[in-house]
């Protein structure tokens, strides 16, 4: 139990008459980059929000880093919300101030280095940034935290190729430097699938398949093949 980053037991969450999570049971070991994969509406974002204590499940048990989700645990998690935007009246500098004053374990010098690496100008205003640039800024706010768990919900959504490459580079660098478990959900699987140490495939609020990525590769083929086989009907349109 101690070396599990996340444990979910029979977790359910209903929105109206749609089950976003439907008896989800999951164990994610700590360390490494974990892909949370599945078609739209499979429950990835709801799972992440329950881990952050934003959404309360209707039933089931969740343990994140050994404790119940909630604001106390969030001090140890860097979270990039789904479809997130940044405060449009901020500049890059003000966003870093926000991180320094409100987030524990926020390493400002690391954030400055990352901003430099990702070609962000400190005086640049968020209002008027391209989506890719804004996404880079938001990712910096996550990567600059020295925390044992990082949860990134669709960090590549609607982002140009160059920003995507820069984000992947920064993510890999940060995973090299610190002992962090990274949970990452994405649609851009062909760009990222080689990144995963561990993969979880979700469908309709349940875990369809999970395991060490290399074992899955030797057993079933590439992550994309697995997606195609598991979610044929959902993926063909994408």
């Amino acid at each position: 139990m101690t070396n599990m980053a996340v444990t979910c037991t029979d977790v359910s969450k209903r929105y109206g008459n749609r089950m976003a999570l439907n008896g989800l049971t999951l164990e994610i070991p700590s360390g490494g980059i974990v892909g949370i994969l599945g078609p739209n509406g499979s429950g990835k974002s709801t799972l992440f929000r329950t881990l952050m204590g934003i959404t309360r499940p209707d039933s089931g048990n969740i343990s994140v880093l050994g404790s119940v989700p909630g604001w106390e645990t969030n001090a140890k998690i860097a979270y990039l919300p789904d479809r997130a935007r940044w405060y449009a009246d901020h500049t890059v500098r003000k966003a870093l101030d926000w991180g320094s004053s409100l987030l524990p374990n926020f390493d400002r010098s690391r954030a400055l280095a990352l901003a430099h690496e990702m070609n962000l100008d400190l005086g640049q205003s968020v209002n008027g940034m391209s989506r890719g640039t804004e996404a880079r800024l938001m990712l910096i706010l996550c990567l600059a935290r020295q925390v044992p768990l990082m949860i990134l919900d669709e960090p590549f959504f609607g982002i140009d190729l160059i920003s995507r490459e820069k984000i992947i580079d920064a993510l890999v660098a940060s995973a090299t430097e610190q002992e962090t478990t990274v949970l990452l959900s994405t649609h851009e699987i062909s760009d990222t699938e080689s990144l995963f140490d561990y993969a979880v495939f979700l469908r309709a609020g349940r875990v369809e398949r999970q395991g060490n990525a290399d074992s899955l590769r030797s057993q079933y083929g590439s992550m994309r093949d697995i997606m195609r086989n598991l979610f044929q009907e959902e993926v063909t349109s994408q």
């Binding site: 952050m52 106390e72 979270y79 409100l102």
Partner: peptide
């Protein structure tokens, strides 16, 4: 509306 609610509600501070 601004798309920042996820940042706001995941702050490690009591509600």
């Amino acid at each position: 509306k601004n798309g920042t609610v996820g940042w706001w509600l995941s702050l490690p501070m009591p509600r």
